[in-house]
């Protein structure tokens, strides 16, 4: 694209003065996107806060139906995947393409584990009828005295579901990064896509850091 300057690097778009300006612009745009992501989840966090303040006892009792061990396992899996993502960027900055590739594949595998554990949790809840809204039907001994536990599960499923969707999208993006790194399109000279997808992936981790105590560790 940089027809006016034959010495410019191939990845530099002609409408940027230099690679640093291009990199900084991409990063600022990514943070604008992160802002919209935070505000998307903000609506759901507000729903959580309002309903928990209305039904404090119901939230405490209904959360006992969630499996803390699975939640903690997912927390560990996601933090580790955040580390491997950060190390993939570190490796590409050092121009170590092979290590970067290994770290990206590890990140992908951890993301898959996260969704696998989530699937086990969801399928159990579907079986016993701990479902959102009018699909709720569970009346085991822990909840017979409770008023409206379906509200807890509506919020639980929508928040963890939207988060799970982000994990799935993140997996697609990481798969593309694996391909691009394998083809040799990314290097210490140009790794902008990896840095941006890394920021997205850490945001997914960051949201889970709040979801875990808010759903699994109440009271």
């Amino acid at each position: 694209m940089s027809n006016h300057n034959p010495d410019a690097p191939k990845h530099l778009k002609h409408y940027f003065a230099n690679v640093d300006q291009q990199y900084e612009t991409s990063k600022f745009a990514m943070w604008a996107f992160i802002l919209t992501e935070v505000l998307t989840f903000a609506g759901l966090f507000v729903a959580y806060i309002v309903f928990r303040s209305w039904y404090p006892d119901m939230f405490v009792d209904a959360h006992k139906l969630l499996d803390v061990n699975k939640g903690l396992m997912n927390t560990i899996v996601l933090i580790t995947s955040s580390l491997t993502m950060a190390l993939a960027i570190w490796a590409i900055q050092k121009n170590n393409r092979k290590l970067s590739l290994i770290m990206l594949i590890a990140t992908f595998v951890f993301a898959f584990c996260f969704l696998g554990i989530k699937f086990l949790e969801y399928s159990h809840k579907f079986e016993v009828g701990q479902l959102p809204g009018e699909y709720y039907s569970y009346m085991g001994p822990e909840v017979v005295h409770l008023n409206n536990p379906h509200i807890f599960f509506s919020i639980y499923f929508i928040m963890t579901g939207l988060h799970g969707l982000h994990v799935a999208i993140g997996m697609g993006l990481i798969a593309w990064l694996i391909y691009a790194t394998y083809k040799g399109n990314l290097s210490s000279e140009y790794y902008t896509p990896m840095e941006m997808i890394g920021i997205f992936w850490h945001l997914v981790d960051l949201i889970w850091i709040y979801l875990f105590p808010l759903f699994y560790l109440i009271g």
């Binding site: 600022f28 802002l35 505000l39 507000v46 993502m85």
Partner: peptide, 28 residues
């Protein structure tokens, strides 16, 4: 600050992030 590199970034990125938290606070 560390994984997302905000500590070493240009502060405009941190500002953007803190703005999202500020608007979340207003919302709540």
């Amino acid at each position: 600050f560390f994984f997302m590199h905000l500590l070493w970034d240009d502060k405009k990125n941190l500002t953007m992030f803190l703005m999202s938290l500020m608007f979340f606070g207003i919302f709540v």
